[in-house]
Structure formats: structure tokens, C-alpha cells
């Protein structure tokens, strides 16, 4: 219990202050944009639920430096992703990769939409064939 409380305290302590980059931004918008996208999509594994962009802990700033250096060295997005996943696993990606184990997760929007709309449309079509009673309370 005490350990849980301590862990929680550490997490919350990490939340209070913002992580702010002291390095200069990239001179071009393209690389700065990629940098910002990456630091928002990589999870700070140490603090459990914040992106490395938002965490002031040491590891987060080390990982931001890593991303910055890889972009500066002209490395591709695929290389950055591979670098992080090799070390921290898929957990580090806020955008879950498409694998056999996440097919259902990524198919959910389409499947649920089709299912819900399918049922709704079926009901609507069935009702539209029913007799429309004329209720005197037709106010709308």
C-alpha cells in the first residue's frame, strides 16, 4: 500500500511541472513538425501515462534529445519508430501498431459503425413499412 502511494506520489509529482525544451527549434517547419509529432506520440514509459513531450522526468528529456538527434541526422520516421520499439516495445507508441493482436482494435471503428448503422437502418426500413397512425398529438 505504501509503495502504491509512493508510486502515485511520484507520478503526480511528475505531472505538476511542465517539460520545456531548452534546445533551439529546428530552423525548418518540416523537421520541427516531425519532432513535435514524435514527442507527442511517444509515451513516457517512466511516468506511465504522459507523452514524452509532457513529462519533466529525466528519461523523457533524454528521449526527446534522442528524437531530436535522429531527426537532425536525417533519419526516417520508420527508423525512429524501430529504435524506440526495439528498446521499449510497442508500449512506447501511443499510436498502436497494426499487428495480429490489434486487428480487432483497429477494425473496431468500421465494424461497430457498420453494425450500429445496419441495425438502425433495418429498424427504420421495417418501421417505414408499418402503418403510420395519425395521432392527433402531431405537434412537430
Amino acid at each position: 500500500m505504501k509503495r502504491v502511494a509512493l508510486a502515485l506520489w511520484l507520478v503526480l509529482a511528475a505531472v505538476g511541472a511542465r517539460a520545456i525544451d531548452t534546445e533551439a527549434a529546428f530552423p525548418d517547419a518540416e523537421r520541427q513538425g516531425r519532432y513535435e509529432r514524435w514527442i507527442h506520440e511517444l509515451r513516457c514509459v517512466q511516468c506511465q501515462n504522459a507523452a514524452i513531450a509532457d513529462s519533466p522526468v529525466g528519461l523523457a528529456s533524454d528521449l526527446r534529445r534522442q528524437v531530436r538527434e535522429m531527426i537532425a541526422a536525417g533519419q526516417s520516421d520508420a527508423a525512429i519508430k524501430a529504435f524506440m520499439v526495439e528498446r521499449y516495445g510497442d508500449f512506447v507508441l501511443y499510436d498502436p501498431p497494426l499487428t495480429a493482436r490489434t486487428y480487432a482494435l483497429w477494425a473496431a471503428p468500421a465494424v461497430l459503425m457498420l453494425l450500429a448503422l445496419g441495425v438502425a437502418v433495418r429498424v427504420i426500413v421495417r418501421r417505414s413499412k408499418a402503418t403510420i397512425d395519425s395521432d392527433p398529438e402531431d405537434a412537430a
Binding site: V45, Q46, G58, L59, D62, L63, Q66, E86, R87, Y88, G89
Partner: peptide, 13 residues
């Protein structure tokens, strides 16, 4: 000191 080796080993805490 700069935490690079720790990153290589996937250390997070």
C-alpha cells in the same frame, strides 16, 4: 550521465 546507455538497454526506472 547522459542516459544514452540506459536508453539502449530500454531502462525506464
Amino acid at each position: 550521465n547522459d542516459g544514452r546507455t540506459a536508453i539502449d538497454w530500454g531502462v525506464y526506472g
